[in-house]
C-alpha cells in the first residue's frame, strides 16, 4: 500500500516537474508546480504508513495505553500539514505575481520576461 502511494507520489512529482519545465505559459507552470507539490505531499504521507495500523487519534478505538502498538507514525502527518500550507502560500504568491506580470506585458509566456540576463 505504501509503495503504491509513494510510487504515485514520485510519478506526480515527475509529471509536475516536466510540466513546469516544458510549458511556457506561466499559469500552466503554476499548475504543474501544484501537481508536483501534491506528489511530494503524497510521498511524505506514504512514509509514515505502517501496515495494519490505524490513525493516531486516542479515542474509544485506541486507548492511550495501547497507542504505541496500534497507530501509525504521526510525525509525517504533522510535517505534511506544514508542507501543504507552505505550498499554498507560495502558489498564492506566484499567482499574484503572474497577474502583475501580465498587467505589465500582456503576455503569459515566460520566455518574454528576459530583460535581466547575462
Amino acid at each position: 500500500m505504501a509503495y503504491i502511494a509513494m510510487a504515485t507520489g514520485f510519478i506526480l512529482i515527475l509529471i509536475g516537474l516536466f510540466g513546469a519545465l516544458t510549458n511556457r505559459n506561466i499559469l500552466r507552470m503554476i499548475v504543474a508546480f501544484t501537481v508536483a507539490d501534491t506528489g511530494v505531499n503524497m510521498v511524505i504521507v506514504a512514509i509514515g504508513y505502517m501496515h495494519g495500523r490505524t490513525a493516531p487519534i486516542l479515542d474509544v478505538a485506541v486507548s492511550a495505553a495501547e497507542a504505541a502498538a496500534r497507530i501509525i507514525d504521526p510525525v509525517p502527518q504533522a510535517l505534511v500539514l506544514t508542507a501543504i500550507v507552505i505550498g499554498v502560500g507560495v502558489t498564492a504568491l506566484m499567482l499574484a505575481y503572474t497577474y502583475k506580470l501580465y498587467e505589465k506585458k500582456r503576455t503569459l509566456d515566460i520566455a518574454q520576461f528576459t530583460e535581466l540576463k547575462w
Partner: peptide
C-alpha cells in the same frame, strides 16, 4: 530501498506513549 517500519521509531513511540499524559490531547497529530 524503502522498507516500511514494523515498529514505531523512537520519536513516534515517544509521541504515542506520552501525548496523553503530557499534553492531554487525544489527537496526537
Amino acid at each position: 530501498g524503502y522498507v516500511p517500519d514494523s515498529e514505531l521509531n523512537q520519536t513516534a513511540r515517544y509521541y504515542a506513549d506520552k501525548t496523553a499524559s503530557e499534553t492531554g490531547a487525544a489527537n496526537i497529530v
